[in-house]
Amino acid sequence: MKRLAAMVLVISTAIAMFTGCSGSKGAAGDGEKLVIGIDDKFAPMGFRDDKNEIVGFDIDYAKAAAEKMGVTVEFQPIDWKTKESELNSGRIDLIWNGYTITDERKEKVLFTKPYLKNAQVVVTLADSNLTKLDDLSGKIVGLQSLSSASDALNANPIQSKIKTVTEFADNVLALSDLKIGRVDAVVIDEVVIKYYMSKEEGTFKLLEESLAPEEYGVGVKKGNEALLEKLQKALDEMNHDGTATEISNKWFGEDKVLK
């Protein structure tokens, strides 16, 4: 009987452990940790500073939301090309780093309400003779692989006139190749390039026309409406109590958050 009781205890414990480990994460509760997938080279939204610490608008924004939700956060740098796969596999809980809302992505993930406006623009060197989109005809254009920059360029008639579209793992590499002349221009988020232009005055200029307006949102795994609802409630509270405005002023010098 003792052996039978011991076996029952072992089996019960194993079942409990398996259930706890294999169950999908629902609405985040007090003390729970959310893993947020980011591109750690996407300044000023999420990037590494001189001390190699992950900082940025989205980093502060996520921390503030987590505090209101009663959870902790861990920022996990990921290959941005596999962001939806990382989310749907459960390796991360949220995609939160300048993540553009598109109809195609809505088929793969749940989105919060938009929290920031952006646009895809074209940047070149300050001394370049390129000034408008038509000037890209016959040129080499760089962009981040599987980003909304690619979608915006493909949707514009100029795409068919471009000589070559070179894809990069991140915007930092694309801008580096622009500076050494390997590409003639780069399609990039307006929020991102304006940050770099403020840090490297006289290096870059934007073409007169932008490609497409867009909005950022936070991506949640489909089926996890409970987490989405709790996160959205926290973001709404941040809009009402001034937290969002304070974070925006810190990073952009103005209130850019959508209310």
Rank of each mutant, 00 (worst) to 15 (best):
E53P: 00
I54P: 04
V55D: 03
D58Y: 09
I59V: 15
Y61H: 11
A62S: 11
M69R: 06
V73Y: 01
V73G: 05
I78F: 08
D79V: 09
W80L: 06
T82R: 14
K83D: 08
K83H: 08
E86T: 03
E86Q: 14
L87H: 00
N88W: 03
G90I: 04
R91A: 10
R91C: 00
W96A: 12
N97V: 05
G98Q: 00
T102C: 04
E104M: 03
E107A: 13
K108F: 04
V109Y: 03
F111L: 13
F111D: 07
K113P: 02
K113C: 00
L116V: 04
K117L: 10
K117T: 13
K117Q: 14
A119Q: 15
Q120W: 01
V122E: 02
A126V: 12
N129I: 05
L133Y: 03
D135R: 06
D135V: 10
S137I: 04
S137C: 06
I140C: 00
G142S: 07
S145Q: 10
S145E: 10
S147I: 00
S147D: 04
A149T: 02
S150A: 12
A152Q: 10
L153P: 02
I162K: 08
T164K: 15
V165N: 00
V165W: 02
T166D: 01
E167P: 00
V172Q: 11
A174N: 07
K179A: 15
I180G: 01
R182I: 08
R182K: 15
I188P: 03
D189Q: 11
V192G: 00
I193P: 02
